[in-house]
Design a protein around this nucleic acid. Sequence first.
DNA 1: TATAAATGGTTCTATTTTGTAACAAAACAG
DNA 2: CTGTTTTGTTACAAAATAGAACCATTTATA
Lengths: 231, 231
Amino acid sequence: MDKILIADDNLQITKILSEFAKKEGYEPVTVHNGDEVLELFRQDQFSMILLDVMMPKKDGFEVCREIRKVSNVPIIMITARGEDFERIMGLDIGADDYIVKPFSPIEVMARVRAVLRRVDVSRQETQRCLAYGSLTISLDNALVTIDGQRVALTKKELEILWTLLDNRGKIFSRDNLLSTLWGYDYPGDSRTVDNHIKRLRAKLDKFPHPDWQIKTVWGMGYKFEGAQHEV
Amino acid sequence: MDKILIADDNLQITKILSEFAKKEGYEPVTVHNGDEVLELFRQDQFSMILLDVMMPKKDGFEVCREIRKVSNVPIIMITARGEDFERIMGLDIGADDYIVKPFSPIEVMARVRAVLRRVDVSRQETQRCLAYGSLTISLDNALVTIDGQRVALTKKELEILWTLLDNRGKIFSRDNLLSTLWGYDYPGDSRTVDNHIKRLRAKLDKFPHPDWQIKTVWGMGYKFEGAQHEV
DNA sequence: TATAAATGGTTCTATTTTGTAACAAAACAG
DNA sequence: CTGTTTTGTTACAAAATAGAACCATTTATA
């Protein structure tokens, strides 16, 4: 299993990333300053390092350079908007990609996958596909079908459906969805989610699907519910 | 399988080249300074060496000359724009070809193939052909047909169509296409991709092809989509 | 060298998607 | 049953994105 070293001084961020990394099938290890990164890096073998730029002890740039002296391990830098991208991707740093804060976890994981695939082409391309009854979703190809019929969804609709189905039965509050799909400190209105849900439902309802639905849980949020009420 | 020794002090570059080499069916080995090249060269048998000119320890020229004293192995030099070409191709160096940075991976691999073919005429070349329904593409002959009808495409159009079909169903962002087909740090405008797609579509649309299309995936990029929506 | 073809970039416009506000409807609590 | 909270819906505004037309530059070709 791929180990991922996640470094950010903000505990919330490492927690969120760690959670998503687990979900994607990685094994996350979190640290909170530059020295710890180097320490862990020396002790263990990681498939990928997510590196915040602003960290105590040693900043991300320095850490990245240190690592690059001895290793080719894929590194994705995490940076606040405004810090200079050139430098990150530049030759002297040698990161593989970067992500701008505030990010949406779903986006981060997409990048992680992309970089891992890029670095190791032989890597088994695990298509991110989900299916429930007559419903199938391929996240990478942006393809959704009900009973083999193609359903055209927009990006956000796709992401919502994916998230709900991927956590089938779990209730997502609107804020939950906002932070997962829009970014962890997105300032937007929670009515926005309702709208997307509505549009999504409208499109899905063009095709009959008696075996599942996007259910409103009053006072709490939404969830994907299948006919056979699972735990 | 052909082993290729890739030498560049920039890790990103060796990574990218290595990735594409793997895709093309070669077995890449990467090193990052001149001494390592010579060391590896003595230890192992390579079908080809890609040699960056500017490297620590020993530069590409020197390394190339060293190797040429004892071997005829095909060598392609990689050089930043402005470094003198005359010298590279000159008799005293004896490289087989050279590539100017920033290069596009697809171009580099084309050169590698070309040099290998030139050096070893008996080499069994696997024709790079793709087909989907009424569409056929032969990358090496720049031959595209729809229903047996020849479609005249320019190089870029051909490359785009090839890339999309070769990864049928996969969505390519514009940046994705730019770095794959134009070069890893091509600074160009992503509208440029739109233009080529537009021209490509215009040419393709002269011939009916109801079973496939180049589809725009809004907010994400383009993809080749066949009639039977594959996952 | 002259000419045509290919390529890359700019700008404008059309389209699609997304977000917001206001209000109607439904669910709930007492 | 009634008032309150939550959710759904509608309509519209704003933002993002794609496409078309066009021109400039480069490259290939006769």
